[in-house]
Amino acid sequence: MRWNAVILLMRKDMLLEARQRHAFYGVLLYILSTVFVLYLTMEGPEADTWSALFWVTQLFVCINAVAKAFLQESRGRMLYFHTVVSPSEFILAKMAYNLLLMSLMNAASLVLFIAFMGDPTTDALRFAGISWLGSAGLSLVFTMLAAIAAKALQQASLMAILGFPLILPQLLLLMRLSKTAFGEGFASSSPTEVVLLLLALDTAVALLSLILFPFLWKD
């Protein structure tokens, strides 16, 4: 594993993003229009509804933002990467890049949600932390799923089908954790325990991707 190769691959993705801006701004616009539709359809939702809407929006934003991580790479370019980097360097760079992208998108949707839908949180900073943790988990899981779906036909819809059952437990944990930022008590276990559990899940996903991606890579 050469770390500078990982960093170079990440820089390549960022440069591409900076040059063809349609993808980045496309996702931002997607968030903006979703929040605007929500704003028009309901007035000042309660904390529970607000949080559910926020997480569902995050889920769909993640699918949109991460899906193109592999779809944008043409066959020829993949062949080229195959000759210059190892599969673990490639998937690590993709995961790190998607993590960065989702962190930005997460911040954007948080700001837009608070601006349009009001701020029901009692501790906004805590909720920001929880939502970042969530976006990290989402981006890692969907990076690997995008790699799998890229091998099949009808990639975009397949990614959602493959991903929903796998991401559900994380979403449930995150929604439960979010309640602590809305001034509600925590039922059984302590919040720290849940945070540690989520971090452990994220680590497991990253390790699994590192182990499994080499099998997808050779064609």
Binding site: M144, L162, P165, L166, A204, L208, L212
Partner: peptide, 13 residues
Amino acid sequence: VYNVFAYAMLFPS
């Protein structure tokens, strides 16, 4: 690959 990934994600949860 999906089978292994899904299993490893599902069963802990």
